[in-house]
């Protein structure tokens, strides 16, 4: 565990908590893509199946359980409890265009052709693009609430911090995982446009509004 990975994990945790609290407090999931949240639930489920086979640490197990539970809770709030506030007219990204290629790619490029390993690989590929329905929704409505922007910033920072963690681990432990690294770069790059808007607008107290 190094500082980049710890802050990355905490940033990830913060993002999930921000989203849950936002939906709960406002009793609304307006502006949030249910499809991205469904994809994240699928990501955590397929990645953390090793909870039953491999013990890493109490920290690792605890965080995995939190991520799985929080993602299902978020999906529940969006599709069940606060369904009336869900922006389904704008949440129209075709998720099969993300799920199917991720799955095919995980069959082709993986560390080991075994069920758990392929599901892990699938989760890495899918996570890298799972935010696209959310970014698509923001681009369709042309704006995002500040709290949604904070959520996106925390979530985007997490993989960016993991990139630093992987650079550190490469030099300190000679450890690297090319599948995670390439997917992590893709994932972080997808947020770049948003990061720019966040720094130039949201941090200056303005609403994140896209040019018409």
């Amino acid at each position: 565990m190094n500082i980049f990975r710890l802050t990355g994990d905490l940033s990830h945790l913060l993002a999930i908590i921000i989203l849950l609290v936002k939906i709960w407090k406002t009793r609304s999931c307006a502006g949030i893509s249910g499809k991205s949240q469904l994809l994240f639930a699928l990501v955590y489920t397929t990645r953390y199946l090793d909870l039953v086979s491999t013990y890493i640490s109490a920290y690792n197990t605890f965080m995995k359980l939190i991520f799985i539970c929080a993602s299902y809770a978020t999906v529940y709030l969006i599709y069940m409890k606060f369904k009336a506030t869900y922006d389904h007219n704008h949440d129209t990204f075709r998720v099969e265009f993300l799920i199917l290629p991720s799955f095919v790619l995980s069959l082709l490029i993986n560390h080991d052709f075994a069920v758990l390993e392929i599901l892990w690989t699938f989760s890495i590929y899918l996570e890298s693009v799972a935010i696209l329905p959310q970014l698509f929704l923001v681009s369709k409505t042309g704006e995002a609430e500040s709290i949604t922007s904070h959520y996106l910033f925390a979530l985007g920072s997490y993989r960016g911090l993991y990139l630093l963690n992987w650079i550190y681990r490469y030099y300190a432990e000679s450890h690297y995982d090319l599948i995670a690294i390439v997917a992590g770069v893709v994932q972080t790059v997808l947020y770049c446009d948003f990061f720019y808007l966040y720094v130039t607008k949201v941090l200056k107290g303005k609403k994140l509004q896209l040019p018409a």
Binding site: D50, T54, K64, Y162, D177
Partner: peptide, 10 residues
């Protein structure tokens, strides 16, 4: 290296 390691990250 990238072989044989359990995935120890989140």
């Amino acid at each position: 290296s990238s072989d044989g390691n359990p995935h120890d990250e989140l």
